[in-house]
Amino acid sequence: MAVRIITLVGSLRSGSHNRRLAEAAVQIAPEQVEISVYEGLDAVPFYNEDIDVEGTVPAAATKLREAVAEADAVLLVSPEYNGTIPAVLKNAIDWLSRPFGAGALQEKPVAVVGTAYGQYGGVWAQDEARKAVKIAGAAVAEDLTLSIPGSVVRFAELHPVDDPEVTEKLAAVIEGLASRTAATV
């Protein structure tokens, strides 16, 4: 049985380097691992407990919850916006954390990777993402990290899948995340 990993990308821009990093993950996944990039984070409304009521949950939020619940693990791919996690990714985590104690992230293995323009590759945003999903109930893989600095220069003409250093490190994250799922037991 294949391990299913869903990837949530914190950048909505179609040509973003983080989106390309997620695409690279799909392309280099080993045979026993299926990775999909979730489409539709831009349609999920800001979390509001008033609209998170059974029978009236927005369709986009329900779709997100169902997609993550069906996956064996989650790979978050985050840029860094003003030193922290992008709002779209934080919003997804908020929706996935509910209902409290039983959300789609509960006990689900999660790893966080990303790239950013700065010299540290977005580590602040990735640390914030790990903190948020851990509080949301996920089983965060603290040791599976990949922060790629200088994205604007490094990926100006090179797709991450064509960068041997990136693919080697990304493959290690994917294999480590897949090994933490119940599907591999």
Rank of each mutant, 00 (worst) to 15 (best):
S14R: 15
V161S: 15
E80I: 12
M1C: 05
L146R: 02
A182Q: 13
P58V: 09
V166A: 01
G114I: 10
R180V: 07
S36W: 00
E80N: 14
A61E: 00
I28G: 09
E107R: 09
V44S: 05
K108S: 04
S11E: 01
G118V: 00
V133A: 00
P149L: 11
D143P: 10
I85R: 01
D94E: 10
V88M: 15
G137M: 11
S147E: 09
S78C: 05
T7L: 09
S16Y: 11
E107P: 00
L75D: 03
L21T: 11
W124Q: 13
P58L: 01
L158G: 06
A129S: 11
P164M: 12
Y47I: 02
Y47A: 03
R13K: 08
L21F: 09
D162T: 06
I174D: 01
Y120P: 02
E175W: 03
I51P: 00
F155G: 07
A156S: 15
L96A: 10
V152M: 12
L8M: 05
I51H: 03
H159C: 06
A178M: 06
D42C: 05
L144A: 15
S97R: 07
T84R: 04
F100G: 00
D163V: 07
T62K: 03
L170I: 14
V77T: 13
G150L: 03
G55K: 09
L96C: 04
A67K: 03
T181W: 06
S78L: 07
L21W: 05
A183D: 12
P58H: 10
S36I: 15
G55S: 09
P86I: 10
L144G: 05
R65H: 02
V74G: 07
V166F: 02
P149E: 04
I6D: 02
R98P: 08
D50I: 10
E165Q: 13
E31C: 00
G103R: 03
V110L: 12
G137F: 09
P86A: 08
E142K: 14
L12V: 10
E66M: 09
G55D: 08
T184P: 10
V161I: 15
N48S: 08
R19L: 14
H17G: 07
Q126L: 02
Y81P: 04
R154Q: 12
V57I: 15
P149N: 10
A87F: 15
R19Q: 04
A104P: 10
E165T: 14
K63N: 06
G101N: 14
K169G: 06
V33E: 12
D127E: 11
F100L: 11
W124N: 13
D72W: 04
V166I: 09
N48K: 07
S11Y: 08
A139T: 14
R180I: 09
L75P: 08
E168M: 12
G137L: 13
N48F: 10
E70M: 08
A125M: 10
G150S: 07
W124C: 05
L96R: 02
N91A: 13
Y38F: 15
Y47V: 01
I35E: 13
L12S: 08
L8H: 07
E80Y: 13
A132E: 02
E157M: 08
W95R: 12
S179Q: 11
Q126I: 10
A67T: 11
G122V: 04
E70G: 06
D143L: 04
I28H: 13
V68R: 04
T167H: 10
I35R: 13
R13E: 06
L105W: 03
L41Q: 03
V33F: 08
P99Y: 01
L177A: 01
I93Y: 11
I85H: 02
E49V: 04
